[in-house]
Amino acid sequence: MSETDTPIPPTEADPRFPSGPWVGFFLQKELPGRHGMELHLTFRQGVLSGEGRDRVGLFLVRGRYSLEDGSCHWVKSYVGRHDVFYSGFNEGKGIWGTWEIAPIHKGGFYIWPEGMPDPTQQRLKAEADVPAPGDPAEVPEEEPIPAGAGME
């Protein structure tokens, strides 16, 4: 059997680490606001790899992840430019953490699988059963207060 015949192990089965398109942003103190990024990541046997793009340019991603505690560490290498070191955690709602270009530049980031709602946005969900007419749970109408009442 030659090297080219070696079967490639399957991608990660843990739902926290789906291989495929991811989206997100990084934060940088010197440039306020969210700076979007698009990535295509592969998670396989503790190894994280991929590629992407953001406002700085095209980049490659190489690193590791842990199923035990959800920790993730990787290097984002801009093609023909500099490297950025990322460290974060995945708790089932994407990966969040910090990035650093030592020793001066650092900031935060958050990435998540494409198609998942942005985990940083608050979403309110309200559910209520509407009481049927005459149901004891129905709130009674308030009695009108006569003019001048309570003014004695």
Rank of each mutant, 00 (worst) to 15 (best):
M1I: 11
T4C: 06
D5E: 15
T6Q: 12
P7F: 03
I8L: 13
P9Q: 09
T11D: 14
T11N: 15
E12P: 01
A13C: 09
D14S: 14
D14C: 13
P15C: 08
R16W: 09
P21N: 12
P21K: 12
P21I: 03
P21V: 05
W22T: 00
G24E: 01
F25P: 05
F26M: 04
F26Y: 15
Q28E: 12
K29D: 10
K29L: 11
H35D: 07
G36M: 07
H40I: 09
H40G: 11
T42C: 10
F43C: 07
R44D: 06
S49L: 08
G50N: 02
G52P: 00
G52A: 05
G52R: 02
G52W: 01
R53P: 00
D54T: 10
V56P: 00
L58P: 05
F59L: 08
L60K: 14
V61C: 08
R62H: 13
R62P: 01
S66D: 08
L67M: 06
E68T: 12
E68Y: 10
D69I: 03
S71Q: 08
W74N: 00
V75Q: 11
V75L: 14
K76E: 13
S77P: 04
D83H: 10
V84G: 01
V84T: 06
F85A: 01
Y86I: 05
S87A: 13
F89W: 08
G92Y: 06
G94W: 00
I95G: 05
W99C: 03
E100D: 02
I101N: 02
I101Y: 02
A102M: 04
P103Y: 01
P103S: 01
H105T: 04
H105G: 04
K106Q: 14
K106N: 12
G107D: 06
G107L: 03
I111E: 03
G115F: 03
G115C: 07
M116D: 05
P117R: 05
P117E: 04
D118T: 01
Q121V: 14
Q122F: 14
Q122H: 14
D129W: 11
D129A: 13
P131S: 11
D135A: 09
A137Q: 12
E141Y: 13
E141K: 14
E142K: 15
E143N: 09
E143K: 14
I145L: 14
I145E: 07
A147D: 11
G148K: 08
G150Y: 03
M151G: 04
M151W: 08
E152D: 11
